[in-house]
């Protein structure tokens, strides 16, 4: 097991380095003066530009720039944004909000996705199954910002059941509606994954053998079908945590949630390159860590993987 973890961890390092290198390359090494570009349409402030050139070591060769950039990430010395605040402090402010939102979305999609998927799978071909299948396709098919506006308008504005926008404190009740919107697509996916997996396992030979042992239907479902079906679902949920944090841009924009996505969006619009790079790097890091988490979960859930190494 420990070699397995180590192997997985070592495999993540090139991914992290590659992804950050890619982002860094895109922002700082393509044709054109990156610093001038960072100001976008605004007039170039020479003092800030000089500071930025220093900060990003643009006088050094490319690989040196990149190494120094990596060092700055791991020492949390991320520099300042255009309003002069340390980027690390900005991240410390917005990340907890997005983490809260993503975890709420995860709980929502996991609970409802698994329950609905299990029922649909066990009742394959029946009315409930058919309805849920079509409904999940519709949810997957409608873009998230359309869904967001739809729910914001109906539930938030017309019905008044929830606040259409989130307060700056971003409390848990505030975040319920955005979390549902954020998790809806994955909810449909979890549902379909659970359903497919349950149907596959229902036809597995060991399930028939378990029935032949004299186990009750409930025991067979709980011990053999559900447990085995959850392996791919939990694996997906682990990876989705990273995706939800990175994918919250649209949802946060619609509901005005003061989170990572919102900050990233504003940084992109105002052309704050350093902030963009920093946020994306942290998101890549979260993605890598959540993938590591998935591997650990996978090894824990499936003994075949655990002993493979």
């Amino acid at each position: 097991m420990s070699t397995y973890i180590l192997k997985r961890f070592l495999q993540l390092i090139p991914v992290f380095l590659g992804a950050t290198l890619l982002v860094y390359f895109l922002v700082f090494s393509l044709p054109g003066d990156p610093i001038v570009a960072l100001f976008g349409d605004k007039p170039v402030n020479e003092a800030v530009a000089a500071k930025l050139r220093m900060q990003y070591h643009l006088d050094q060769p490319f690989w040196m720039q990149y190494l120094l950039y990596l060092k700055s990430i791991f020492t949390f010395d991320l520099g300042q944004d255009f309003s002069g605040r340390p980027i690390a402090a900005v991240l410390g402010e917005v990340f907890p909000v997005t983490a809260r939102l993503a975890i709420m979305a995860l709980i929502f999609e996991a609970f409802f996705g698994i329950v609905f998927g299990l029922i649909a799978g066990l009742r394959k071909g029946k009315l409930f199954d058919a309805t849920v299948l079509v409904a999940s396709l519709v949810v997957i098919g409608i873009p998230i910002f359309v869904l967001g506006f739809l729910l914001q308008f109906t539930i938030g504005v017309q019905l008044g059941w929830a606040k259409p926008t989130v307060s700056s404190a971003a409390t848990i009740p505030d975040l319920i509606l955005p979390a549902i919107v954020l998790g809806l697509g994955s909810f449909a996916y979890v549902l379909r994954l659970t359903r497919t997996s349950v149907i596959e396992n229902m036809n597995a030979d060991y399930v028939r053998t378990a029935t032949a042992k004299g186990l009750s239907r409930f025991q067979v479902v709980r011990v053999h079908i559900l447990r085995n079906s959850l392996i791919p679902v939990i694996t997906f949920l682990g990876a989705d945590l990273g995706a939800l944090m990175g994918g919250a841009i649209v949802t946060e924009g619609i509901f005005n949630v003061p989170g990572v996505g919102n900050r990233l969006y504003r940084a992109v619009l105002s052309g704050e390159g350093p902030t963009v790079v920093s946020i994306v790097t942290v998101l890549v890091l979260i993605y890598c860590l959540s993938n590591l988490l998935v591997d650990l979960l996978y090894g824990w859930l499936d003994p075949r993987i655990r002993y493979d190494s």
Partner: peptide, 27 residues
């Protein structure tokens, strides 16, 4: 089904065909 659950195991047992697929891999 209730009666069959009573019978299976202690009155009628089964040995299936394929040993590779008839044991649950996670238990």
């Amino acid at each position: 089904e209730k009666r069959m659950i009573e019978l299976r195991g202690n009155s009628i047992g089964m040995v299936p065909q394929d040993p590779m697929s008839n044991l649950n891999p996670v238990w």
